[in-house]
Design a protein around this nucleic acid. Sequence first.
DNA 1: CCGACCTAGTCAACAAGTTGAGTATGTGAG
DNA 2: CTCACATACTCAACTTGTTGACTAGGTCGG
Lengths: 190, 190
Amino acid sequence: MSLRNAVMAALLDGESSGYDLAKAFDASVANFWICTPQQLYRELDRMEADGLIVARTVEQERRPNKRLFSLTELGREELTGFTAGPHKPTAIRDELLVAVLAADSGDIEGVLASIRERKQWAEAKVARYERLRAKLLDGRSEEDFLATAERVGPYLTLLRGLSFERDNVRWCARSLTVLERRGARLDAPG
Amino acid sequence: MSLRNAVMAALLDGESSGYDLAKAFDASVANFWICTPQQLYRELDRMEADGLIVARTVEQERRPNKRLFSLTELGREELTGFTAGPHKPTAIRDELLVAVLAADSGDIEGVLASIRERKQWAEAKVARYERLRAKLLDGRSEEDFLATAERVGPYLTLLRGLSFERDNVRWCARSLTVLERRGARLDAPG
DNA sequence: CCGACCTAGTCAACAAGTTGAGTATGTGAG
DNA sequence: CTCACATACTCAACTTGTTGACTAGGTCGG
């Protein structure tokens, strides 16, 4: 049921097509929620049926028609109700960690490669989030921004995504050190 | 398919009943993967059917009989294959973040309460992970442990869970400051 | 003018995760 | 003596999330 609320939160910025939402999810909500376009379209249909959003079809000349969705009053109420809580706690749920848990009796070289890849990926995410942050701040200092901006929610969630990926980078680096040393020890014991 | 691998990784420590696995998941694998007992039992049945694990029924006098599962050679191979990768990247997927994203036009007091609750919960987790860490180290220094322990995987994943929760605590504190100030400003503008 | 990529979706099938209840016994606290 | 809690599960129904393929036109580079 949270995808619904994530979609509604995204629609607070104004009406949007399913296609644009999919991209927006990739770009910003993806900090803390990911979904495939298929999931999104299915959910949008249901939300429309439930009266949380309304669609407006826009005919285009040299493009397929698109449907722009926007929040209804009911949708806004539901979203406010959702923000009132309560919210389930969360856990990381990461395949890579499962692999690291089993690394000692598995393919250590393979795990090392996966960690290196993840580290690069996380570094790229950090860079991207930094750019997004600069764009949000738009020249203002953080203090200035927080005092004047209409919405601080997107900034706070961005900070969470940013520190998560920084943490990932640090952990990857640490794990590489530990596992590389271990690999060396196992290759040449004594 | 990753629950399978998480279960197999847990069985590296030796045979275990479904019930004990459920508890073990709560205690340690839960750093990065959570599941309900129902999911676990269902998955164990399938894994047995697929020959990844074998069950040994132990009759007990004053307790229901239990079935102890252990990895088969095939299971070990599958797990090693899994560690070789590749692994899907991950995202946070947290309801609370959805609520914060929408906080500006939602129930700010409710969101604040949720963040406070989450902060306490994360602090409790940190304390618990610290105790687990002390138990794993068992008096040794980290360096000593890493040099001598049979398996370092469980330690590394524990570190990941620990830093994730520490990060949660920090982010909660920061968000509370920002949102409280904002709430005050909205209550008494100018 | 061909192939790759962009816009803007749809459909179907399946795998994974969640929720709620039920079974049956034993132990320890008040 | 009762009530909560621990052991050790099972069953069924449901909601979410994933995978892969398909439609149909437009744009841009070589």
